[in-house]
Design a protein around this nucleic acid. Structure first.
Length: 728
DNA sequence: CGTTGACTTCTTTTT
DNA sequence: GAAGTCAACG
């Protein structure tokens, strides 16, 4: 009961905090810089750079960094510890290649894991070089893969107008396939749910492990029949996606790799094009990603940057063996170690080093980071009664820090999982400390955005049935079954129209080759409308009308503003009215859609726009946080990777919370420890490790032990402090 | 039969 | 908030 209430509150905060239009605009503007700028000619680039003052590499980099930045061609492995200036090294390297080696940005492939990292790096490269255009192939593995497939994917069955499914879409598709193939499957509650099936199949692809094997690991009790069913689901899922011309996240890598393996022409073209390959966070690459890099990087001109101590994505297939085996796969690899740390105080660093020391000695490249900063405070360990008191401590200490002169935006609160921060959020709110949660519901993931986007998805790719389902399902009394009927009827009409057109051409051959019977105009045919339930008929007609208009507009022109114009037209159409009646805060949501117009303006084609909407879908709202806004930042450790803050609080340093119970049970304590390492190395001056002694569970509170990550530490590397709440 | 609404349960991490 | 479950409605 109480829990439910907390969740409501939590959700409320998660939603109310950042959906202010101003922040939105900020967000959209930020994005504009980076994505999809047209490649430019080398000439323009060169001219752009001439009037820019040269970089003094020696002065701006330390020795270790300098060596890596100015490395000769050939394979290079840069082992850059936390806070050692990894991004700096990488960006200077790109600048060095462009300015000193006169490499055209078109010949550089810069791969990262997150959109945020890509954005920051490209931004900095542009600042450094004074270039107006960034490397046109800089971005996440997934977004680059998606773009290359759009252009070259035909050989592996991907048409240029394919749509990308986000995780939710993918799971929905899986679910409908399971229902269709094996209606009895879902009846048995012991069977893994569709989303679990989806994740198992995904894991099998990302690790290149037979499905059989993954099922055996995760479901030791599962029998051969279960495995057989999974294999069937996976097979049909793969076929269906090709039929519908949709691709999930994994496909962006899977088909990219397939294309490189099978399509010699494209492979050679890309090898020729990408003379210089740079990879960030190499320790988090999975097997497909490393293969992709090796295939394109036939010339071995690859710079891989990473830190095996920070590998925290094995759960989605990352293998840090990749980083260890890099020199084997690329003979003549030069290894550059960067261990001088400019971020953290010596005290924090020594604690971080101890965290790694507790790691079983299973090799790895480095270890000790060397402090460059002055002495500062010893990290604190703060035992607290429970998570409520933890929140009170947080609020009180933050107010103290504020009085001491720290800006709130210099303070970060990190936790293992989002739900662990609920009480802290309540207490901060109660104390009037402003904060932003950099997680929770994502902008593009909100129902109304996805519904609206579904219209554009079907326009871009009429075979995208899941999008049709989503869209038509909005109408009253229309569910999957009715959608099926409607689409069938529409298909018939389209077929009829097509035949009529062909025969017309046969007889009168001057007949204009009108786009014979598209699915959208077919929707308006009486036989189709007849399938729509009475309550929904009016809405349906308007929706179909809007789709026809959108389609016409789309077919008409692929002018520069087409994506934005389509969005505008969509808002003017049926959905714009629908949204006002469908939601109590319809006005607000409509404004969100208006925001989409600005965003869409940055894209040439609808396909590109849709891709980015999906790929940024995973981009959480924290990227929309105005960096100047003075609020405390609350985020998961995963999301904090790559960031730094003067003051860091780590919540829930207790067994079962961090390391998370589930992780311990599945035997991934080492990864949890690396994650803890990532958490503590975010801190620059002050680090607070909070340990709640009670853990609320369903039914009651149980006593918790301090996290093994605390007890593993020698007591002299932290100071224990007590906390007495001033009020209840 | 399919859809709806009221009900419960759930939240690891992300492209 | 969202997704899944179940009974009752059209």
């Amino acid at each position: 009961m109480v829990n439910a209430a907390l969740f409501c509150l939590y959700s409320y905060f998660a939603h109310s905090n950042f959906l202010l239009p101003q922040l939105f605009l900020y967000f959209f503007e930020k994005l504009q810089v980076v994505f999809f700028l047209e490649p430019v000619t080398g000439m323009r680039q060169a001219v752009g750079m001439l009037d820019f003052s040269p970089i003094d590499y020696k002065a701006e980099l330390n020795e270790e960094q300098f060596a890596a930045v100015t490395a000769p061609p050939g394979p290079a492995l840069v082992l850059a510890g936390a806070g050692s200036g990894k991004t700096r090294t990488l960006t200077y390297r790109v600048a060095y290649l462009m300015l000193e080696k006169r490499v055209s940005p078109q010949n550089i492939l810069l791969l990262t894991f997150t959109n945020k990292a890509a954005r920051e790096m490209i931004q900095r490269v542009m600042e450094l070089t004074g270039a107006q255009y960034p490397p046109s192939y800089g971005g996440t593995f997934h977004s680059i893969g998606g773009r290359l497939l759009r252009r070259f994917g035909r050989s592996v069955g991907i048409e240029p107008n394919y749509n990308i499914l986000d995780q939710g879409d993918a799971e929905a598709l899986m679910s409908s396939i399971i229902k269709e193939l094996d209606p009895g499957y879902l009846k048995n509650k012991d069977n893994p749910k569709p989303n679990v099936v989806s994740s198992i199949i995904s894991y099998s692809i990302n690790t290149d492990t037979a499905l059989r094997e993954v099922v055996r690991q995760r479901y030791p009790w599962g029998d051969a029949a279960l495995t057989g069913r999974f294999e069937k689901f996976a097979k049909v899922y793969r076929e269906r996606k090709l039929q519908l011309q949709v691709a999930d996240y994994d496909d962006l890598l899977y088909y990219w790799l397939k294309m490189l393996k099978e399509d010699e022409e494209t492979r050679n073209y890309l090898r020729e094009k990408f003379q210089y390959i740079l990879v960030d966070e190499y320790q988090d690459t999975n097997i497909m990603q490393s293969e992709i890099i090796d295939l394109i990087g036939h010339h071995h001109n690859i710079m891989a940057v990473g830190d095996d101590a920070q590998c925290i994505y094995t759960w989605r297939g990352a293998v840090f063996e990749n980083i260890r085996a890099f020199p084997d796969r690329h003979p003549g690899t030069r290894i550059y170690k960067i261990v001088r740390n400019y971020r953290s105080s010596p005290q924090i660093l020594s604690l971080a080093n101890k965290v790694l020391e507790a790691q079983p000695a299973t090799a790895g490249y480095f270890k000790e980071l060397v402090a460059a900063k002055e002495d500062n405070l010893t990290p604190y360990v703060v035992p607290l009664l429970d998570s409520v008191q933890q929140g009170q401590f947080l609020a009180q200490r933050i107010q103290g820090l504020y009085d001491e002169g720290y800006a709130l935006k210099d303070i970060a609160v990190l936790y293992r999982a989002h739900y662990q921060a609920v009480d802290a959020q309540l207490e901060l709110t109660r104390a009037g400390v402003p904060f932003v949660i950099t997680s929770g519901v994502r902008f593009f993931e909100q129902a109304h955005i996805r519904d609206f986007i579904a219209q554009l998805r079907v326009i871009n790719n009429p075979s995208d049935k899941p999008a049709f389902e989503r869209l038509l399902g909005l109408l009253p009394r229309v569910g999957p079954a009715t959608v099926e009927k409607i689409l069938k009827a529409a298909d018939l009409e389209r077929e009829k129209a097509r035949r009529a057109n062909i025969s017309a051409e046969d007889t009168l051959f001057e007949t204009a080759p009108t786009e014979a019977g598209d699915i959208f105009s077919a929707l308006l045919k009486p036989t189709v409308v007849a399938k729509v339930p009475a309550d929904a008929k009016a809405d349906f007609k308007q929706l179909a009308q809007t789709l026809c208009e959108l389609n016409e507009l789309f077919e008409d022109g692929r002018s520069r503003t087409s994506a934005a114009r389509l969005v505008q037209r969509g808002i003017d159409g049926w959905y714009g009215d629908y949204i006002l009646t469908a939601y109590s805060n319809g006005e607000e949501r409509r404004e969100d859609l208006e925001g989409l117009i600005n965003f869409a303006e940055k894209f040439d084609t609808l396909s590109e726009f849709l891709s980015q909407v999906v790929l940024l879908n995973s981009e959480t709202s924290n990227r929309s946080v105005d960096p100047d806004e003075d609020t405390v930042r609350m985020t998961t450790v995963h999301q904090a990777k790559g960031l730094e803050y003067p003051v860091v609080f780590v919540l829930g340093c207790a067994e079962d919370l961090f390391p998370l119970k589930r992780a311990v049970e599945s035997g991934s304590v080492d990864e949890e420890r690396r994650l803890f390492y990532v958490a503590v190395t975010r801190a620059m001056d002050q680090l607070y490790l909070c340990f709640p002694m009670m853990n609320k569970t369903r039914g009651g509170a149980i006593r918790t032990e301090p996290s093994r990550f605390l007890t593993e530490l020698p007591p002299d590397c932290y100071e224990k402090v007590g906390f007495r709440p001033t009020r209840y």
